[in-house]
Computed example of a mutant assay.
Amino acid sequence: MSRKVDNEQHVEFSVSMCVYKKDNPDHFKEALGSIVNQTLLPTEIVLVVDGPIPSSIENVISNYEGVPLFKVIRLAKNEGHGNARRIGLDHCSNELVALMDADDISVEDRFEKQIKSFEENDEISIVGGNITEFIDSVDNVVGIREVPQNDDEIKDYLKRRCPFNQMTVMFKLSHVIKAGGYKDWYHNEDYYLWIRMYQSGSKFKNLEESLVYVRVGEEMYKRRGGINYFRSEAKLQKYMLNHNIIHSGTYVKNIVLRLVLQVLLPNKMRGFIFKQFARKKIEKKGKD
């Protein structure tokens, strides 16, 4: 099931992930495979099953249940992403916790690189990285979402956009708890947490490399738009304004930009804008 790792300085850390009924079982299987085939293995994988799931997903889980490092937490009903994340962290045994989504693929040395960052700087609270976006296959890369790397840049970026790719992060659990942990917030549980960690004095870092391959497509752009998504982000901007993280000029600018992108633009146009201006373009090589 997993690669044998020869590393005498192995640091104990957990991986926390969630799965629910609408996740693709094949993608879920790939996601799990990318965790157990790392150059540095976790000592614990905590999987929250967020409500009833079909047999196809259950079959994937059954291949791992009984493995000592694999811990399955089953919820009677779907609690939502933020609550499921919080419950997963409640069951993690280690101070360092890496997050993982059920349909993405971690690069094989992701955890090794993140652990090294914590070892080099004990003040860091969270380490994330870039993501490589693909359609259907990792051979069909369509873009890279780059995020700022050092603490000052990340905290400045946070005032305009979410500064971390959530599926890439590894953090100190005690620092997350100090900030209040995950709380339910429509499609923005992670951004809300990073803001509160900023308020609590956490130190941030992103690696310059891509740490996770992420599936994208029309469904992703749909999730990034609509009146409910806009209201969620508008509330976050109001929260930052009320807590003096941003000033009124930034607030107005952020609200107007989100209104246009998330409400006024159709999905196809929103997707075009994201790919043109919010992602690093990938040059496609022609056939010889």
Rank of each mutant, 00 (worst) to 15 (best):
S34F: 03
I35D: 02
I35V: 14
V36C: 13
Q38H: 00
Q38C: 01
Q38F: 01
L41S: 09
L41F: 05
E44L: 12
I45G: 03
V46G: 05
V46L: 12
I53K: 10
I53G: 05
S56W: 02
E58W: 04
V60C: 12
I61K: 07
S62W: 02
N63S: 14
G66R: 09
F70A: 09
I73W: 11
R74S: 12
R74N: 07
A76C: 01
A76H: 07
K77H: 02
E79H: 12
G80N: 12
N83D: 11
R86I: 03
R86K: 15
R86F: 07
I87R: 08
N94T: 15
E95H: 03
L99F: 14
A102P: 01
A102W: 05
S106K: 08
S106M: 12
S106A: 15
E108R: 00
D109T: 02
Q114W: 10
I115N: 05
F118S: 08
E119Y: 00
E123Q: 07
S125Y: 07
I126T: 01
V127G: 01
I131S: 12
I131Q: 09
D136C: 08
V138M: 15
D139A: 14
N140T: 06
N140C: 12
V142W: 12
E146K: 13
V147Y: 10
P148G: 00
P148N: 02
I154Q: 00
I154N: 01
K155W: 10
D156M: 06
Y157F: 15
L158E: 09
R160N: 11
P163G: 04
M170D: 06
S174M: 04
H175W: 10
H175F: 11
G180N: 03
G180Y: 04
G181P: 05
